[in-house]
Structure formats: structure tokens, C-alpha cells
């Protein structure tokens, strides 16, 4: 099968997935979640007032019309206004995503580089003390909760030693830099443990393949085998893992953003949940699902491009 045909096919597959996801979101927010007018109008609201507001918000329309509104908003990127802050939701998402990326992107890049290097060292020295030590450190890092790192970082590094601001954020480059250093460090610590373990397993998997034995039989050096053959093959699942993480970068890290007062998308989501701000939650859910579908498709396509063993049929 031609690669172009495969790509078109993969995109077409994504369409029913998108409809399915948007329908689920519609059921979750418009049917299961109940009547939002109670929350919007407060304790003194009468049935009449609630009916008026339901009418104004279009909640008394037929279900398929309400579902159509969701689809329309997803395609036009016009999600309307937030119920809580009255801001344009698309603007909120744009500004929140930008802030989240100032934190998540450097963390992601640095943690990925560190994880790759350490996992390669660990796999190269498999079974030796250095490998065991690195694995032990990874397990310890993974076992400690995010909250502990945050509290420790804020208490010791920020408050006691005064190395970083305790919390806060300033918009615009380079003013945000001092505020994101500590959250970035915590993010890196949190993500490297599991990433190292994952990448190490992938590399080790490749170590026992036939082609490695063949290379050894041919008399190639261990370093040559590792760098030229093993790494090349191990890169496919590693790249997949990295690409799959990208959509989540715009969402930020809910806990870190909340504790450090970083006004990113994670913090917007949390506020929206606390305020029952359905339009915002709905918009972010649709957006995340859409981006996830797109990146999933990209990963599949990349798989085909990078790994000639995958049969298009």
C-alpha cells in the first residue's frame, strides 16, 4: 500500500473516533452532569429563574441540536465564554497553554535527554553495579509522591535557602524564568524515573535480538553494536513514547501549577472543575481529545516511515 493512501486512511479512521469522543463528552456534560443553572444562579434561584436561564443557554433545545453545537464549536474553535470569568474560552486556552508550555516544554526536553542518556548507560552496563545503582535510584524517585517533592522544594530550596521564589509567575520572557526553575526541576525528577526504566527495558529488549548476535559473530565491537544497531532500533518505541507525551504538554501539570501558582492550562482546568464551569471543561476535553487523536495518527504514520518491517497491508 502506498504511504499516501495509508496516511489518508489513518486520517479517515480518526474521524469516527472524534465523533465518538465528542458524543461521549456531550453525554457527560449535557446529560449526566445535570442542571448547571443551580450552580450559576445560587441559593436564591427559583424554578422560573432556572427555566429562563436554561432557555437562554440553549439547554432546553433538542439533544441533537445541543450535540451539533458541540461539534460546531470544535470545528470553529469558538467555544463561547466561560461561565465563571466571562472570558473568551479560546483566549483562555491560548494563554493558558502558552504558560503551561513555558514550564512543560523545557522540562520535557531536559527530562527526555537525561532519561535517554541514563537509560543508555544503564543498559550498556546491564547487571553491573552502576546499572543496579541507577535502577535503585529510579525506583526511589518513582516511589516518592509529587507532593513530597513540591513541599520539600518549596520548604528547603525556596524558603530555607532562598534559591527560588516560593511560588508565583510573571508573564513574558524572560520574567517567567525564575519562577519556573524549581517547578521544572521537580517535573524532571518526577518524569525521569519512569522514563529511564521504560527506555532501559526497550534497549535491553533489543540486546537479545538475533541481529545483535549476528553483529557480535561478525566481530563488531560492543560500542559499535550498541550505538549503530541497538539504539537505532530502540528509537522507534522511544520516539513513539515521546510523541504521545506532546499533547499532554499543553495541559501542564495540575499539581505543580496549583502549588506554584502558575496560571497554566492545568490550573485553568482545576478552577473550571471547582466552579462547575462546564463550557471550559468541555472545550479543554474536546481539544485534548482532538490533539491526542491527531498525535496518535502522527505516531502511527511515523512508525510506518521509520520501521520498514511494518507492513502497510
Amino acid at each position: 500500500m502506498n504511504i499516501i493512501v495509508y496516511i489518508i486512511k489513518r486520517i479517515l479512521y480518526a474521524i469516527p473516533v472524534f465523533f465518538g469522543v465528542s458524543f461521549l463528552i456531550f453525554i457527560m456534560f449535557n446529560i449526566v452532569a445535570g442542571d448547571p443553572t443551580i450552580m450559576l444562579l445560587g441559593k436564591y434561584a427559583t424554578a422560573k429563574q432556572m427555566a429562563d436561564l436554561r432557555h437562554y443557554l440553549g439547554l432546553d433545545k433538542a439533544w441533537y441540536l445541543q450535540y451539533f453545537d458541540i461539534l460546531k464549536s470544535a470545528f470553529t474553535f469558538n467555544f463561547g465564554h466561560s461561565w465563571a470569568t466571562k472570558q473568551l474560552i479560546s483566549e483562555m486556552i491560548k494563554s493558558g497553554a502558552k504558560v503551561s508550555l513555558t514550564l512543560s516544554l523545557p522540562s520535557f526536553i531536559i527530562s527526555s535527554i537525561i532519561s535517554l542518556i541514563i537509560s543508555m548507560i544503564s543498559a550498556f552496563y546491564r547487571g553491573k553495579w552502576i546499572d543496579k545503582f541507577l535502577v535503585l535510584i529510579c525506583v526511589i524517585m518513582m516511589s516518592i509522591s509529587a507532593l513530597s517533592y513540591i513541599l520539600f522544594g518549596q520548604w528547603i530550596l525556596a524558603y530555607k535557602f532562598g534559591l527560588f521564589p516560593i511560588e508565583g509567575y510573571e508573564y513574558g520572557f524572560p520574567f517567567f524564568i525564575p519562577y519556573i526553575i524549581l517547578p521544572c526541576i521537580i517535573w524532571i525528577i518526577l518524569s525521569t524515573g519512569s522514563d529511564i526504566r521504560f527506555y532501559r527495558t526497550i534497549i535491553l529488549d533489543e540486546l537479545y535480538q538475533d541481529y545483535v548476535r549476528t553483529a557480535r559473530a561478525k566481530g563488531l565491537s560492543e560500542t559499535m553494536i550498541f550505538c549503530k544497531h541497538i539504539l537505532k532500533n530502540a528509537m522507534i518505541p522511544i520516539i513513539t513514547n515521546l510523541i504521545i507525551q506532546i499533547p499532554f504538554l499543553i495541559l501542564g501539570f495540575l499539581l505543580i501549577e496549583n502549588f506554584f501558582g502558575i496560571p497554566g492550562l492545568g490550573s485553568i482546568i482545576l478552577d473550571a472543575i471547582n466552579n462547575s464551569d462546564f463550557p471550559v471543561i468541555k472545550a479543554i476535553t474536546i481539544l485534548t481529545a482532538s490533539v491526542y487523536i491527531v498525535f496518535n495518527a502522527i505516531t502511527d504514520i511515523l512508525y510506518v516511515i521509520l520501521d520498514p518491517r511494518i507492513n502497510l497491508k
Binding site: L41, Q49, H55, Y56
Partner: peptide, 25 residues
């Protein structure tokens, strides 16, 4: 969509009628 309106609903002459009249916004 004011939360505060509830305190004065059905209290001021003509205000609730005005609200109902323009419920489409």
C-alpha cells in the same frame, strides 16, 4: 446570570415582569 438577583426577586414592582419579558436576553 446574576446570583444577587435572588435577594430581590418578587420584591420590586414590575422588575420581575420586565425580566420575564426579555428572557431571550
Amino acid at each position: 446570570m446574576s446570583n444577587s438577583y435572588g435577594y430581590i426577586q418578587n420584591r420590586i414592582k414590575g422588575l420581575d415582569e420586565w425580566r420575564r419579558k426579555y428572557k431571550d436576553g
